[in-house]
Computed example of a mutant assay.
Amino acid sequence: MADDGLITIGALARACGLTASALRFYDDCGLLVPVRVDGATGYRYYSEAQVDRGVMIRRLRGIGVPLEAVAEIVDGDGARAERLLDAHVAELAERARAAAVVTRMIKEEIRAGAVLSAAALAAAIEQVRSAAALDREMPILAGVLVESSADSVTVTATDRYRLSTRAMVPVRPSGAAWSVVVDAGELGGIGSWLRGLDEVSVWSADDALILAGGGTERRCGVIDEAYPDYRAMLAGLAPVRTRVVVARDALLAALEDRGAAPIVFLADESGLLLSRDGSACIAATITGPRTELAFSPTTLRPALVSAIGPEIMLDIASADAPVVVRSATDGDLTTLVMPTAIMNSKENDA
């Protein structure tokens, strides 16, 4: 403090919560002028009464009030000061609203969400989800893999005995590739919501798959484990030896009378037989050599129920290799079904 009761610039800076350089700037602007400046040293001295003004300037600048408005507020009458403050707050609110709009657009670009037909996604989830494992012995198999690329969105599930995968062409593709594994249980009730929408945006977050449409949003929890390389499994399938094209409903109806015991198929030139003795024969188009194999109904029925279209195609490599089940008219949905061991005649008759 100076001898005449004035305080130094450092003391005022500490009292106001400002820096000495800020006080020098406000001096140059005429906002906070020192009472005296030492002509020899150039030191600035202030009165203690200027502390309140310095605090007011700091607070106004802290909320972004422009310098010219600060001068009017600290030097003008109270009514004028209030109007200026209200105008500044309104401007801040408008800027915040505009910033929120831009931020939302940027986030959507960062999320790189794909836009899909909501009905197509609902159908794909229902077709594929039943292939996920019901038990939690391997938690990752209780999930549905959702993948987005530049030209498709694919959903896949497998329980080791059956694998279903369906690709969809998006209305608007994703800006970047991503994939998540969603707990299949969380997708169980989402179909009715999706069917109430025209389109749905889909993207991944750190801990969720997010679906948004119609002003609402759904978040599905994810399983943070590596999913089996199903593409390598598909690529490694043995060459097709026999191809069967058959009416889906006719095959399903024939299965209804077979109970839970393994079903023996015999594909030859006469059609598709569901037993060796030919007691149940379904009209089918068979290409390739005669083939005999067996299925568990609990594995085969869901694959047939979820198939697209009135006819299905069975691509058979051998009696102990996965059989590819596809729509004969739409290849977007592909299902692999693992045959079971064929019983001998005595076991079959029993």
Score class of each variant (00 low, 15 high):
residue 1 M to I: 13
residue 5 G to S: 11
residue 12 L to N: 08
residue 15 A to Q: 11
residue 16 C to N: 08
residue 16 C to Y: 06
residue 17 G to N: 10
residue 19 T to M: 03
residue 39 G to E: 15
residue 69 A to Y: 03
residue 70 V to E: 05
residue 75 D to W: 09
residue 98 A to E: 09
residue 108 E to C: 11
residue 115 V to S: 06
residue 122 A to R: 04
residue 123 A to I: 06
residue 126 E to G: 07
residue 129 R to W: 08
residue 137 E to P: 00
residue 140 I to P: 02
residue 153 V to G: 01
residue 157 A to P: 00
residue 161 Y to M: 08
residue 162 R to A: 05
residue 181 V to L: 01
residue 182 V to M: 06
residue 183 D to Q: 10
residue 184 A to C: 06
residue 186 E to G: 12
residue 187 L to H: 03
residue 189 G to T: 08
residue 196 G to N: 09
residue 201 S to D: 07
residue 203 W to A: 14
residue 204 S to P: 05
residue 204 S to V: 05
residue 206 D to I: 11
residue 219 R to H: 13
residue 222 V to T: 13
residue 223 I to Q: 09
residue 231 R to G: 12
residue 234 L to P: 02
residue 242 T to I: 11
residue 243 R to T: 15
residue 253 A to N: 12
residue 254 A to W: 02
residue 257 D to T: 13
residue 259 G to S: 01
residue 263 I to G: 00
residue 270 S to G: 11
residue 271 G to P: 01
residue 275 S to E: 02
residue 277 D to Y: 10
residue 277 D to V: 08
residue 280 A to W: 01
residue 281 C to E: 06
residue 285 T to W: 12
residue 287 T to V: 15
residue 290 R to H: 15
residue 298 T to H: 14
residue 312 I to F: 01
residue 321 A to Q: 10
residue 321 A to C: 08
residue 322 P to A: 04
residue 327 S to Y: 11
residue 327 S to N: 14
residue 328 A to V: 10
residue 329 T to G: 09
residue 330 D to Q: 12
residue 333 L to W: 08
residue 334 T to S: 13
residue 348 N to K: 06
